[in-house]
Design a protein around this nucleic acid. Structure first.
Lengths: 220, 220
DNA sequence: GCATAGTTTTAGAGATACCTAAATTTGTGC
DNA sequence: GCACAAATTTAGGTATCTCTAAAACTATGC
C-alpha cells in the first residue's frame, strides 16, 4: 500500500528502526517512552502503520518494521543525519545542538534539498557523531568500531563514533577537546572509569563509565 | 495574550500581512482564495486569531492585523525570505524554486538557524526576487522602485524586484537572462507589450504586459 | 495451575484544522 | 425601502493524533 506518510508516522518508523537495531521486536512501551507519548497512543498508531504494511504487529508481542517500513525509516534517518552534518559543517553548529534542529527539519526538506546538501558535503558516509548515513539506496555504511569500554589499557585509539542520545555527554566531551577523529591514549582502566590522554590537548582526562560506554573507537 | 502559534496560524498571519500591504482590511474570501481553503475555514481560524489578539475582526467587514499580529507575520516573512536567499545563494537553487521549499521550512527553523544563515549571507536586505527582508526588529528595507510599466521609452533601467507570485513569469525571465541586477534598455512601449534590450546578452526581448507589470526598476 | 503484577489494547473523549450545507448579513439596483 | 445576489458566518461533521480510564492479556512465582 503506497502511502503518504504523516509527520507522526515518520517519527514512529524512525523510532522503531532505532529500537530494533538488534533485530528483535520492540514492545509498545519502549516506543511510548522514546516518543514521550502514552502506550495507548502507540497502539493506535501501530495499528495504522500495520494497515499500511509498514510494520508487523503481533498483538501483545511487539512490533517490527516490514521491508517498506525499513525503507521509509532509512529515508528519514538519511534526512536527519545529512542535516546534522550540514548544520555542523556548513552552519557551524556545535555537535550537541544539531540533533534538535535536524529532528524538526527532517520531515520537511525536499528530495532536492537532500541531494543538494549531500553533494555540497561530498556525499558523506558519517554524521558529526560518527553515525552512518544511509545512501539514497538505503545502504548503511559499516560501523565496525568496538566500544571503548572493551579496550584494555594500555592502548592508543581514535574516536570514531559517539552515542549522541545524551546531550550532556556531548557537551562534556567537547569541553575536554574530544570529538570524532580525536586520538587518545588509554592510560588506565578502573571499574567505574578510565583515564585517557587526549593527544591534541596533551591533557589527562578521567572518563566515567557512563561516558566510556558511549564511545566507539579504532585501535591504532 | 502570549501564544504558541501553530503552523496554520502562522500561514494565516503571513497571508493577511501580504493582502493588507495597502493598509485596507482584507475580506475573508480573499484569504480563502490565497490559502486554498473554504471561506468557512477562514472564519473559524480568524476567530481564533482574534481571541489571541493577533487580528482585528469585524464580522462581515474583513480582517486586519494587530500590532502583535504584524510582528508575528514579519517574523515568518523574515524566515521565508532569508531561506529563499540562502537556498539561492548557498545551495544553488533557481529563483523559481526557492518559494516552495522556503514555504515549508519557514515554520520549522529555529532562531539560531535564522541567525546563522543571516550572518553567513551578510545580513541581506533583499531576497532573490528583490523582496525586502524584515530585520530582527521587524523593520522592512525600502522598496522605492517604480513598476516598469510606468517607465516610458526610451530608458535604461536596472531590474530591482520581481513579483514572484507566478512561477511561470520567473522561469520566463531567467530563460531570457533577466534577473535582479540585470540592466536593460527599453526600446519601445506598446499597449500590450514592450521591447527591451538585455545588456548582458545583447538580445532584444519582447515582454508582454503580464510580465512588465511584475518588474520594478531603477532608472539610470 | 493459578493468582497476580505488569503490559497492552480497547473505549471514549479533546484539540486542531479542515470540510459541506444552511443560515445570516450586507449592500446594490430598482 | 425592499428584494436579491454575493459575501460571511454558523452548525455540524471528518480526519489526525493525542489523552485517560478501564478491560484484556501475558508471564512469572509459588
Amino acid at each position: 500500500m503506497a502511502v503518504n506518510l504523516t509527520h507522526s508516522m515518520q517519527d514512529y518508523l524512525k523510532t522503531i528502526f532505532m529500537l530494533t537495531a538488534d533485530h528483535t521486536r520492540v514492545p509498545t512501551t519502549r516506543i511510548a517512552q522514546t516518543l514521550n507519548v502514552q502506550p495507548a497512543s502507540v497502539t493506535s498508531m501501530i495499528k495504522k502503520l500495520a494497515d499500511c504494511q509498514l510494520v508487523d504487529h503481533q498483538s501483545y508481542h511487539g512490533v517490527a518494521l516490514t521491508e517498506s517500513g525499513r525503507t521509509a525509516a532509512l529515508e528519514m534517518i538519511r534526512h536527519h543525519r545529512l542535516l546534522e552534518t550540514y548544520l555542523s559543517t556548513a552552519l557551524g553548529y556545535d555537535w550537541a545542538d544539531v540533533h534538535e534542529e535536524a529532528d524538526r527539519l527532517e520531515h520537511y526538506i525536499s528530495e532536492e534539498f537532500e541531494d543538494r546538501i549531500a553533494s555540497l558535503l561530498g556525499n558523506p558516509l558519517y554524521d558529526p557523531h560518527g553515525d552512518p548515513i544511509p545512501g539514497r539506496d538505503g545502504v548503511l555504511p559499516p560501523t565496525p568500531w568496538p566500544c571503548l569500554l572493551d579496550v584494555p589499557a594500555p592502548a592508543t585509539v581514535t574516536i570514531r563514533r559517539v552515542d549522541s542520545s545524551q546531550r550532556d555527554a556531548l557537551v562534556f566531551l567537547s569541553s575536554k577537546g574530544i570529538t570524532i577523529g580525536t586520538t587518545c591514549t588509554v592510560l588506565k582502566t578502573a571499574s567505574s572509569y578510565i583515564m585517557i590522554d587526549v593527544s591534541s590537548t596533551h591533557k589527562t582526562v578521567r572518563l566515567p563509565n557512563a561516558i566510556v560506554q558511549r564511545l566507539f573507537v579504532d585501535q591504532i
